[in-house]
Amino acid sequence: MYSSPARVQNVFGFFTTVTFSIAALVALSSAVFPANPTATIDVREFRVIKGRAHQYYYSKVQEYAFINFDLEADLGSLFNWNTKQVFAYISASYPGSPGSKFSENEAVIWDVILPSHSASKLYLRNERAKYNINDVTGKFAGENVTLSFHWNVQPHVGALKWGSVGLSEAFTLPPVKTKRVKGNNSA
């Protein structure tokens, strides 16, 4: 501490120690806030259509599922002082046809980034899925699909937090080119 450069080094050195200690405390403080978001999903409409991916290098014709859904979600409890943003998404999962080696399948059909607490309530009616999914085998009809709602908290400091809440009723994808409305599903 005899000379000015020595004092600059000392102050800066201890500044980094304090900064990392506070950052660690902030990261740990996230655990104090309870995360109990709510969500309900209802499937409105679903159909399977044969099509080609919008990719010039891949011309295989395969089955695509189009899904419309209702969503009501309240993610307010995920926003605290250490929340940068919340990523929420809906995935469709289905067991795969009997005998298939792909026995557990999950694909994201819709997602959203919530940047602040004021955007934490979601209310969607007959929302069309952002992503039309196709199966790895190219065939879809007859699959027993369930939608589920997932959230992912991205904090300023600390670890990402993942969770899942809200499961729709299972529905069976109809054969190609027919359109069914919920409740009219004979399978």
Binding site: R7, N10, F14, S21, I22
Partner: peptide, 25 residues
């Protein structure tokens, strides 16, 4: 650039650094 200080001053500077930064945190 040197900014030399005496022994008592160094002790005081050390204490002040710790105190100010901890309270700031």
């Amino acid at each position: 650039i040197d900014g030399f200080i005496d022994f008592e001053g160094q002790s005081l500077a050390e204490t002040l650094t710790t105190a100010i930064l901890v309270l700031t945190g």
